[in-house]
Simulated scan of single mutants.
Amino acid sequence: MPIDDVGKLEDEEPFPIWAGNPFINKIVNADDLGVSIVDAISAAHEQHCHFAHVIENICAEHGVVPRSRRPSLFLSEEECRQALRLLSDLPRPILCVHPYGTSSPGEGHPWHREEWLKLIAEVSDRMSVLEVGLHRRGDKGLPTRRFRTTLRQMMAIVWASDMFVGFDSSVAHVATAFAKPAVVLWEPIGKTEIDRDVQLGLGAAAYARWSYPENRNLILLDDTQGDVRRATLDWIESHRCAIGPFSPR
Score class of each variant (00 low, 15 high):
residue 198 V to R: 14
residue 194 I to Q: 02
residue 185 L to T: 10
residue 227 D to M: 12
residue 207 Y to P: 03
residue 188 P to V: 03
residue 182 A to S: 15
residue 196 R to E: 11
residue 230 R to P: 14
residue 207 Y to E: 07
residue 213 P to C: 12
residue 197 D to R: 01
residue 192 T to G: 00
residue 220 L to V: 04
residue 182 A to R: 01
residue 242 A to N: 07
residue 216 R to T: 12
residue 215 N to M: 14
residue 215 N to H: 14
residue 204 A to Y: 08
residue 223 D to R: 08
residue 189 I to C: 02
residue 228 V to L: 12
residue 211 S to T: 05
residue 208 A to Y: 05
residue 216 R to L: 06
residue 210 W to S: 04
residue 192 T to Y: 00
residue 219 I to Q: 04
residue 186 W to E: 01
residue 220 L to E: 03
residue 182 A to W: 00
residue 214 E to W: 13
residue 226 G to W: 13
residue 183 V to G: 08
residue 185 L to G: 04
residue 228 V to Q: 07
residue 230 R to G: 09
residue 203 G to Y: 00
residue 234 D to K: 06
residue 187 E to A: 03
residue 229 R to F: 07
residue 201 G to A: 10
residue 201 G to R: 06
residue 194 I to K: 00
residue 214 E to Q: 15
residue 230 R to E: 13
residue 218 L to F: 07
residue 182 A to H: 04
residue 241 C to D: 07
residue 243 I to L: 15
residue 193 E to D: 11
residue 198 V to Y: 05
residue 229 R to N: 06
residue 215 N to P: 14
residue 212 Y to T: 09
residue 212 Y to C: 04
residue 194 I to R: 02
residue 236 I to D: 14
residue 195 D to G: 00
residue 201 G to D: 15
residue 238 S to L: 11
residue 211 S to A: 09
residue 191 K to V: 01
residue 185 L to A: 03
residue 243 I to R: 08
residue 191 K to Y: 03
residue 190 G to F: 02
residue 236 I to G: 07
residue 186 W to R: 01
residue 195 D to T: 00
residue 203 G to H: 00
residue 217 N to Q: 04
residue 224 T to E: 15
residue 208 A to G: 08
residue 189 I to Y: 01
residue 189 I to H: 02
residue 199 Q to E: 06
residue 228 V to Y: 01
residue 230 R to K: 12
residue 236 I to N: 06
residue 225 Q to Y: 10
residue 236 I to F: 10
residue 208 A to E: 13
residue 224 T to I: 08
residue 183 V to S: 05
residue 211 S to L: 04
residue 241 C to G: 12
residue 218 L to T: 13
residue 190 G to I: 00
residue 222 D to N: 14
residue 213 P to E: 13
residue 217 N to W: 04
residue 193 E to V: 01
residue 182 A to F: 06
residue 244 G to D: 15
residue 208 A to R: 12
residue 231 A to G: 08
residue 202 L to W: 00
residue 235 W to L: 09
residue 199 Q to P: 02
residue 202 L to C: 02
residue 203 G to L: 02
